[in-house]
Amino acid sequence: MTVRHPLLLPMLVALLLLGAVGSLALGVVPLSPARILAVLTGHGDETARAILLDLRLPRMVLGIAVGGMLGLAGASLQGYLRNPLAEPSVLGASNAAALGAVAALYFGLSQLHPVVLPLLAILAALVALGVLFLLAGPAESPLTLILAGIAVATLAGAGISLALNLSPNPFAAMEIMTWLMGSLENRSMAHVLVAMPCVAAGAALLLADGRTLDALTLGEDGAQALGIDLGGARLRLMLGVAIGVGGAVAVSGAIGFVGLIVPHLVRPLTDRSPSAILLPSLLGGAALLTFADIAVRLIPTSSELKLGVLTAILGVPVFLVHLMRERRLW
């Protein structure tokens, strides 16, 4: 019984490695391979070191972490909610994290230290998780969870609108808007240190439950009668999404469509069971975001294109073409 196409994982790993190398090698300032190699071996010139280690390296690591987390969270949620339209933001974690970040910008706290903004964003995602528990904790149906998630997301969205509405001057509003569009520009190793533990914990929680997602193909009763502890699985899913996606959004801003389309793109190369797409979605999301981040650096626009804007622009047509081809299955 083959669960995935035998070449799927190797291909995605190769793609990801290619993206990672490209992310280090390509940028606005051209660096020759010799200079890059010199830095990597420990003796490069000052400028090359700064560009590579302080600018491109954190950007590459964050691209992989954020993209992987979004892809994995999308795959997990589609499996758990048994809904192909589910994406990482359905539980409200992204909006809540965005609200935390917006609050940091609005009250000027983000100027105290670069880490204040992502920390506040993660804190807000955890608060949202608490609210989600209160609303949907004990209930069993996935629908309750979706409704509670929509409530949390809408409330956080309203908070963001309020901050924009009350922002003291157009520049403050502009700053918030720019952050909301999603980007990996000017991120430092401090951001990596904030995001990585969250993403790692979130990914570990989500990867553990592949079997549960498969069993849910038979519905809640069917899964429980197979010995699955749905309550525990639901808890891990909520925690994993809130911590992981919260941590990712905290450093990148809202990046749409990756979590929605990546599971759909890898699914035809698997046996379509929810567990089979978890790892490919993580790798695929990481690769996709890394390449998208290279693209925004290379596309010559007056101000750098925002990553979230590019993923949405590219994501929609890809998704539509894909759905047209695959729709007979839904």
């Binding site: 019984m1 048994r82 498969d214 193909t217 038979l218 699955i228 929810p274």
Partner: peptide, 18 residues
Amino acid sequence: TLHWPLAVERLVALGRLP
């Protein structure tokens, strides 16, 4: 009701989960 379009063999294999 089946919530995912699984292959028959995979579906039957779910019975081994316990």
